[in-house]
């Protein structure tokens, strides 16, 4: 019952977003029903389509988890994008730089390096927040720019594929490629497993409880003996590491190298997905699948209904808008009740 109730807001937000998106297509002169039919047919019914949707969903799921961990610990990690790029580039580098390694070592190594670099970028924001009081939203936004520019420079300079005309690294070795499982990308199953693990950790472990306590009431956490500073850094390490893993999976499982243009927006979609899932790690799974399907099948919509694939971005933006609107409304309501309780003492 509780889960059903929790899912109401996201579902309503999605329905409204699709309705508004449909209206806009209609104004454009396209048939929204044809467009949506094409979208869902191509995303979720053909085996190719499903594979593509789930492949796209994988990095989204993991970056959604990254943002979720942050939110649970009271941190709004806007920097999933930067951490993801750091992970994507680092793992791609490890993927092509090490040759003659067996698959069983090479792939885990490359993934680990991706995680490490994501964590590193996250940790900068975490340390600044914990020990200097700099707000993580500010630092992660700035880090996004820094990492993006740095990655573009590296993939267009020192790490550039020889002879390539565009900015990209060399292709990764075969031994670092994430294989498919039952025709579906292995990364997808990894993502689901991770979502379950994160969910379990928050439900059952002392670490999860510490994160959550800091997220809900820092003063009470400090009072009860939890080191708020350490947890803040730890949460940014985990969050950044997850985002880095998302990038690594994109590089090693989808693109096969690092190419700056390909990772655009994955981390930001992660924010929307985490908010859509209301920071529930399991809720990230369906959210990411929906987003992955729309991202994957967007171009089909153009082909079948003549609408610009940009409409997908629009709908996803509307989803974000409508899912946060109730949060904003609730915030206002909370403020009202707070004001009331100042004068009432009622229910005290």
């Amino acid at each position: 019952m509780k889960t059903l109730k929790g899912a109401a807001t996201p579902l309503i937000a999605i329905i409204i977003a699709f309705t508004v998106g449909g209206l806009l297509m209609f104004i454009q002169g396209a048939n929204p029903l044809t467009a949506y039919q094409s979208l869902f047919y191509n995303a979720f019914t053909t085996s190719d389509g499903i594979a593509k949707s789930l492949g796209k969903a994988t990095p989204l799921m993991i970056s959604g988890l990254a943002v979720t961990v942050g939110i649970r610990a009271g941190l709004f990690n806007i920097g999933a994008q930067g951490q993801l790029i750091a992970g994507a580039l680092a793992s791609a580098w490890a993927g092509y730089r090490f040759t003659d390694l067996p698959f069983i070592i090479h792939l885990p190594l490359a993934l680990l390096i991706g995680i490490l670099f994501g964590s590193l970028v996250g940790a900068i924001a975490g340390l600044l927040k914990a020990y200097r009081g700099v707000h993580e939203v500010i630092t992660t936004i700035m880090l996004n720019s820094i990492v993006l520019q740095l990655a573009e420079y590296l993939s267009n300079g020192p790490l550039k594929e020889e002879g390539s005309i565009i900015a990209r690294t060399p292709a990764i070795e075969e031994s670092a490629v994430i294989p498919d499982l039952f025709g579906l990308p292995l990364g997808f199953f990894l993502g689901i497993a991770l979502a379950a693990i994160v969910w379990w950790i928050f439900k059952n472990t002392t670490t999860g409880f510490s994160f959550e306590t800091v997220g809900r009431n820092k003063s009470a956490a400090w009072y009860s003996g939890i080191s708020v500073k350490k947890i803040t850094v730890a949460a940014m390490l985990v969050s950044g590491g997850l985002a880095g893993l998302g990038g690594a999976i994109e590089s090693l499982g989808v693109i096969g190298r690092f190419e700056p243009a390909f990772n655009a927006g994955l981390g930001f979609d992660g924010i929307t997905i985490a908010l859509l899932a209301r920071a529930n790690p399991l809720g990230v799974i369906p959210g990411a699948i929906l987003f992955g399907g729309m991202r994957g099948a967007g171009p089909n919509m153009q082909f079948d209904a003549g609408v610009s694939p940009d409409i997908v971005d629009l709908i996803l933006a509307l989803v974000l808008f409508f899912v946060t609107a109730p949060l904003i409304a609730r915030w206002f309501k909370l403020r009202n009740t707070e004001q009331r309780s100042v004068t009432s003492g009622w229910g005290n």
Binding site: T213, R216, N217, S219, A220, A221, W222, Y223
Partner: peptide, 11 residues
């Protein structure tokens, strides 16, 4: 201050 330090209201 039990609201601030003593309790996590949403626990």
């Amino acid at each position: 201050d039990r609201e601030k330090h003593g309790l996590v209201a949403t626990y």
